[in-house]
Design a protein around this nucleic acid. Structure first.
Length: 487
RNA sequence: GGCCCCGUCGUCUAGCGGCCUAGGACGCUGCCCUCUCACGGCAGUAGCGCGAGUUCGAAUCUCGUCGGGGCUACCA
C-alpha cells in the first residue's frame, strides 16, 4: 500500500503558518514513504470564504518548496479537489446514513439552539443538542416552537460510540463523547466532519495528519468511517503552535501566524522550513541545521513532540542569518535585489551598473544580515543617488562635529592615492591620521570618516567601503564633511 | 462548568530506570578578534511544577495535585 497524505486548508484569509507546519510533516513522511501528498481545499464555510486565499496558499507553500502531487490546480485521479465542487458526492452518503438510522433531520432554529446552550451552561450541565427533533416528522416538529423551514442533518451519536483510538504520535488516546453533530448544513454544504471522512476515504488517504485541536472530534469521524463500512486511516495529531502566552497561535496575537509575513520580513524559505521542522521534531543526530531532505529521510512519528511549541522568532532569525551566509554570492544577490527595488535603491529591472555594485558589496554585507530587509540600510550609502545622499544628523552631531580637521587630513591623504584599492587607501589614511600623522587612535580617526562617507555610525568596513564607492564619490563626501566646496 | 490533551533552562529540545552532580541550540552576560556593526572563537548564566508511591536506584513508571492548552458551532 502506498501512503497518501493530504493537507486541507480552508480558504479564509491569509494562509496560516499552521498550514505550512502540517504540510511540512505530511510531506516529510509522504516523501520518505514514496507516497503521495494531496492538497485539498476545504471551502465548505461560505460565510468565511475568501476568493483570494486559495491562490495565496499555493504561492506560499510553493515558496517554501512544499509542493503537492495532486490538488485543484494540478488535478489528479480523484478530482475535483475543492469540496465546494463535490456537493453531489456527499449527498448519497447522507441519505445512506439517514436510511440506516444513523442520522436524522433537525429543524431547530439557530436561536433555539443558542438559547438551549445558554440554559445548559447556566445550569452547569454538559452542553449538547437535546434531540428535540429526533423521531419527529416535519409536520410534528412544525407544531413546536423554534422551528426552521430548512432542515439540517445530524448524527445520532450512540451511547457506545468509540472514544478511543491509536495515534501515531501520542499512542493510545481518549477523546470526549460528541453530541449530535450536524453533517449537512441548511445551505446544502456538508460540515467539515462529513466532508473530511468522505473525501479521505474516496481519495484513498491513508494517514490523517492534523492539529491537536481535532482530537476531540475524532470520535465523530471514527463513527462515520465505521457506519459507512470504511477502513479507518491512521491518525497523527500534531501539537499546536503557540503564541508567547501559550495560547493557540493566532493572527491577532502574532504577526508570524500569517505565512506571507515571513516573505515580507525577508526570511528565507529554507530557514523557515528548518525552523518549523525544529518545532516539535529533532533529528536522531541532534543536528539543528537541516534540510527538508534530511528531515524526511530520518522521519519518525515517535520523534514528534506532544507539547505545543512557542513560536520563538529569535531562533528563526539566527537560522535565517545562517542560511543567508551560506548562500552563493550570485544567489544572495538574486534574493536581495527585490528588497533593494522595493526600497527604491535600484531599478526594476536592475541596471548592469547597479547589479555590479551590489555584487561587489556582497562580501561585505552578507555576514552582517539576518534578514533580507536589512539590505537597503546596509547598502544605501553605495546605491543612493549622489544628490540624495544625506548624513544622519544624530551621527554627525556625535562623531563629526569639531572633527573637520581629521576629515580634511584624510581627504588630502586620499586625494594623493593613485591606485584606488583597499590597501593603498588604508596605508595613506593611517600614515596621515595615526601615530606618525595626527597621532590619533584608529578608533578615533575612523569614526568621523565613517559618518562622512557612509552617512551613519554603522557600516561595512571603512577602507573597503571607500574602494567600492569609488574615488569621485568618496572625495566629494569627504569634501562636503570637511566644510569645503566641491571642485 | 464538562470532557480531552500536555507539563525538562526565558525559548526550541536530548533524555525513554542506573551512562544525568540533566546534554545541545537560540537568547542573554563576559572575554578574544576588531576602524563601527556583524561574522567567528572561548567561557558563563539558567531547568526536570509540586506531593506521595513503586524500586537497591526515577527527569524517566503509577497515583494525586497544581498549572497550561484544546474542544464544547449549521467554523474549520
Amino acid at each position: 500500500m502506498t501512503v497518501r497524505l493530504r493537507v486541507a486548508p480552508s480558504p479564509t484569509g491569509d494562509p496560516h503558518v499552521g498550514t505550512a507546519y502540517m504540510s511540512l510533516f505530511n510531506l516529510a513522511f509522504a516523501r520518505q514513504q514514496g507516497g503521495a501528498f494531496v492538497l485539498r481545499v476545504e471551502d465548505t464555510d461560505r460565510a468565511r470564504f475568501d476568493p483570494t486565499s486559495e491562490q495565496q496558499v499555493y504561492d506560499t507553500l510553493r515558496w517554501l518548496g512544499l509542493d503537492w502531487d495532486e490538488g485543484p490546480d494540478r488535478g489528479g485521479p480523484f478530482a475535483p479537489y475543492r469540496q465546494s465542487e463535490r456537493l453531489d458526492t456527499y449527498r448519497p452518503y447522507v441519505d445512506q446514513l439517514m436510511a440506516a438510522g444513523h442520522a436524522y433531520s433537525c429543524w431547530c432554529t439557530p436561536e433555539r439552539l443558542q438559547a438551549m446552550r445558554e440554559d445548559q451552561q447556566k445550569r452547569k450541565v454538559p452542553t449538547g443538542y437535546d434531540r428535540r427533533c429526533y423521531g419527529l416528522t416535519r409536520e410534528q416538529r412544525a407544531e413546536l416552537d423554534g422551528f426552521a423551514d430548512v432542515a439540517v442533518v445530524r448524527m445520532l451519536i450512540p451511547d457506545d460510540a468509540p472514544l478511543h483510538f491509536t495515534d501515531l504520535i501520542r499512542g493510545e488516546v481518549n477523546a470526549p463523547k460528541p453530541d449530535d453533530q450536524v453533517l449537512l448544513k441548511a445551505d446544502g454544504f456538508p460540515t467539515y466532519h462529513l466532508a473530511v471522512v468522505v473525501d479521505d476515504h474516496l481519495m484513498g488517504i491513508t494517514h490523517v495528519v492534523r492539529g491537536e485541536e481535532w482530537i476531540s472530534s475524532t470520535p465523530k469521524h471514527l463513527l462515520l468511517f465505521d457506519w459507512l463500512g470504511w477502513d479507518r486511516p491512521a491518525f497523527a495529531h500534531m501539537p499546536l503552535l503557540r503564541n508567547t502566552d501559550k495560547s493557540k497561535i493566532s493572527k491577532r496575537k502574532n504577526p508570524a501566524a500569517r505565512l506571507t509575513w515571513f516573505q515580507e520580513q525577508g526570511y528565507l524559505p529554507e530557514a523557515l522550513v528548518n525552523f518549523l521542522g525544529l518545532l516539535g521534531y529533532s533529528l536522531p543526530s541532534q543536528e539543528e541545521v537541516f534540510t527538508f531532505g534530511q528531515m524526511s529521510a530520518s522521519f519518525d512519528w515517535t520523534r514528534v513532540n506532544t507539547v505545543g511549541p512557542v513560536f520563538d522568532l529569535d531562533k528563526l532569525e539566527w537560522l535565517n542569518g545562517h542560511y543567508l551566509r551560506e548562500l552563493a554570492p550570485e544567489e544572495f544577490v538574486r534574493r536581495t535585489l527585490p528588497f533593494l527595488q522595493r526600497a527604491g535603491l535600484v531599478d526594476d529591472p536592475v541596471t548592469a551598473a547597479q547589479q555590479a555594485a551590489v555584487e561587489a558589496a556582497v562580501e561585505l554585507v552578507q555576514p552582517r544580515m539576518k534578514l533580507l530587509t536589512e539590505a537597503p540600510d546596509l547598502l544605501r550609502f553605495l546605491l543612493v543617488d549622489e544628490q540624495a545622499f544625506v548624513v544622519d544628523p544624530v551621527a554627525a552631531e556625535k562623531e563629526l562635529a569639531g572633527k573637520q580637521d581629521v576629515v580634511a587630513a584624510a581627504l588630502a591623504a586620499v586625494e594623493a592615492v593613485q591606485d584606488w584599492q583597499t590597501a593603498p587607501l588604508q596605508e595613506a589614511i593611517e600614515v596621515a591620521l595615526l601615530a606618525d600623522g595626527l597621532g590619533l587612535s584608529r578608533k578615533k580617526a575612523l569614526a568621523p570618516l565613517r559618518v562622512a562617507v557612509t552617512g551613519g555610525t554603522v557600516a561595512p568596513p571603512l577602507y573597503e567601503s571607500f574602494a567600492l564607492l569609488g574615488r569621485d564619490r568618496t572625495i566629494a563626501r569627504l569634501r562636503a564633511a570637511a566644510g569645503l566646496a566641491a571642485v
